[in-house]
Amino acid sequence: MTSSLAKAAGRTAAKRRSGSWEPFTVVSVIGVALFMLVCLIPFWVIVSGSFTDEQTLAGKGYSLIPQPFSTAAYKLIFTGPTLVSAYVASIVITVAGTVLALSITSGLSWVIARRLPYVSRPLAIFAYIPMLFSGGLVPLYLLVTQYLKLQNSYFAVILPLLVAPFLVFIQVSAFRQLPEEILDSARVDGAGELQIFFRIGLPLSKPILAVVGLFYAVHYWNEWFTALLFMSDIHKYPLPLLLQNLISNVSFSQMLPTAAAQSTPVYQLRLALTVVTIGPILLAYPFAQRYFVKGITLGATKG
């Protein structure tokens, strides 16, 4: 299988699509369109609801047209003094976290994927065990706050989530599909193992790097729990934590006074918060996606 892959390299996927409209294609288009609809309608309902007046939302439920139109929830979100710093924190955490995580994960995955005797398999098991066994919250908390002293540092959010075993395995299985011949020919040319990794392995694996990178980015973008644990300075709260606080700022228990004096548009707020959090991801997604469409060994064996 791997050898045929090498031969195929350089041909674009577009070729596959030169056929006529077969029934299966039509079925696919309809199938995807239906699923898109199932995903789009709630999305639209969320966006539309976030602009609908709270009274109407609570009274009639959600509608497809924001009527009467209201921006109360967005005003509430955007007048918060810390929103800008929250976006900054989230961007820093996401960018730094993704770059670090992707580098480290790639290194580990490459070593596992090379099937080195006495190294790869133990490493794979070593990486897999943390997916199942966890020491729990308290030791992690002590580790970060008392030994690493990372309170109020962005690294407190980045480091504990640095390598996700799940993504290691995704990447390993992708690395293993790289044509061995290309690597061998490089060895014949006298390239060292590290050179092969950096000059051939990584460039050939752009699509999987994009996929894994995207998953890391989403993780970091959405992460609020580690931030909750280790950040006490509100000016360093990442966006999801800030929003999480807003969303749960409700009269928590019957024992409590009816909380804040101002009436918050709860329905509207929840929807607006969803829009604010996922908006940037949806905007960034097409850029990462560019790589998915490209062939995996594109450009490796040109000429």
Binding site: S134, G136, L137, V138, P139, L140, L142, L167, H219
Partner: peptide, 18 residues
């Protein structure tokens, strides 16, 4: 996928082992 946020709700005991 990797259960990263699983810690988020299980304040599973660990005590002061570390």
């Amino acid at each position: 996928p990797a259960g990263l946020s699983r810690r988020g709700f299980l304040a599973a005991g660990g005590g002061l082992s570390l």
